[in-house]
Computed example of a mutant assay.
Amino acid sequence: MALETFHPSEPLTLGVELELQLVNTHDYDLAPYAEDMLRLMRKHKLPGSVVPEITSSMIEISTGICHSPQQVREELGQIRDALVQSADKLNIAVVGGGTHPFQQWHERRIYDKPRFKEISALYGYLSKQFTIFGQHVHVGCPDADSALLMLHRMSRYIPHFIALSASSPFVQGHDTAFDSARLNSIYAFPLSGRAPFVLQWSEFGKFFDKMTRTGVVNSMKDFYWDIRPKPEFGTIEIRVFDTPLSVEHATALAAYVQALAAWFLADEPFMPAEDDYLVYNYNRFQACRFGLDAIYVDPARGEHMSLKDHLLTTLEQVRPHVQAPGAADALKKLSERVHQGHNDARWLREVQAKEQFLGEVSRQASLRFRATPQTT
């Protein structure tokens, strides 16, 4: 199979996908209600889409093509409100977060869809362990070569995205000591990690041809990279975010991606290099393990600094390029979170420390998702 033609898109447009948990309202464990939710959601006229995910206790929502964080917030809010109404009818709840805190993977059911069945047949138990929940952000690129350049520039900021979105400290009833344990599950897949360092689409096409000739790759969907090009959309897709606990925070993360992309296109602040990836896995691990308290190693200079400091410096660097409606407010909220050292993983741990019951953590997270005033 040949690599798809890259279809240019309007630069800096956004698309956001959120994978969400469906839980019962008895003990707040995952519940296999995706099919019922999809049936009810079809009655709503909404932007974007609502689709199943690999197991039947998951659902994925996505915006349409958005031009601003404000539009992302409005579209996600509309879909969120319809999800909450539908869930109430089924006596279940919808929850954000990168992992469910105490579900048991062996109890999950693979959703009845051919691609999911193929994945299950290939990957065995890993498919059910893939009951993890992420946010994906697409950003529009003017042409194929620009997309690859954007991808490799954006890779330096993967630790930012992980630490800001981290919301998966608990797995199978235990505190993992990671802020984002979700990404450890993704690394179990053989085609995860990072894209090869090529900056021309013609060279990427040669790589893709070699991979398809091996028989292990049929399409771009087979790559579980942290960032991958999406030629059919004319975007790059950033995939390391844990699903946030609220659509407001999901919007702020998308605003940060758009601001970085605007900075790259306007100023071309640096040229990426293969050597950037010498510290990539270390920086990635630090962000997964320690969140906003991580150490960041600058790929160009080898300098060690706090991830917080690097984040705050970058937020200042992109500020002149923040023009889209809703962007300035979103980045201000991110900056406040960084100053406080407070991500969703910390909030989840604080609730567990107070309640000593993970079911209550999940219940309160469901209220946070539906924007109940006392929990936002």
Score class of each variant (00 low, 15 high):
117 K>F: 00
274 E>I: 12
367 L>V: 02
185 S>W: 11
100 H>D: 05
323 Q>M: 06
63 T>V: 07
136 H>E: 03
134 G>I: 01
16 V>E: 09
250 A>C: 14
96 G>T: 01
63 T>M: 07
85 Q>C: 00
373 P>E: 11
240 V>G: 12
25 T>M: 10
92 I>W: 02
267 D>H: 15
299 P>D: 02
90 L>D: 00
172 Q>A: 10
122 L>T: 11
260 L>R: 08
68 S>P: 10
136 H>G: 08
152 H>D: 10
164 L>W: 12
157 Y>R: 15
178 F>P: 04
68 S>E: 11
83 L>K: 04
45 K>L: 07
324 A>D: 10
145 D>Q: 03
257 V>H: 08
62 S>T: 13
279 V>G: 01
353 A>W: 03
369 F>H: 01
127 S>H: 08
235 T>Q: 09
138 H>E: 08
344 D>V: 06
51 V>D: 07
294 A>W: 03
160 H>S: 15
176 T>M: 03
34 A>I: 04
126 L>R: 03
236 I>N: 09
339 H>S: 09
302 G>V: 00
151 L>Y: 09
170 F>W: 02
109 R>S: 07
375 T>H: 14
332 K>P: 06
266 A>W: 10
242 D>R: 04
250 A>N: 15
346 R>K: 15
333 K>F: 13
26 H>M: 08
300 A>G: 03
211 M>G: 04
262 A>D: 12
297 V>P: 01
335 S>Q: 15
265 L>N: 12
290 F>A: 09
48 G>D: 02
60 E>S: 14
83 L>P: 09
177 A>H: 05
325 P>N: 06
355 E>L: 11
145 D>S: 04
170 F>A: 05
282 Y>R: 08
251 T>A: 05
70 Q>R: 15
356 Q>S: 06
27 D>S: 14
345 A>N: 08
135 Q>G: 07
172 Q>L: 04
163 A>E: 12
339 H>V: 13
69 P>E: 11
192 S>P: 10
342 H>K: 13
54 I>A: 11
249 H>I: 06
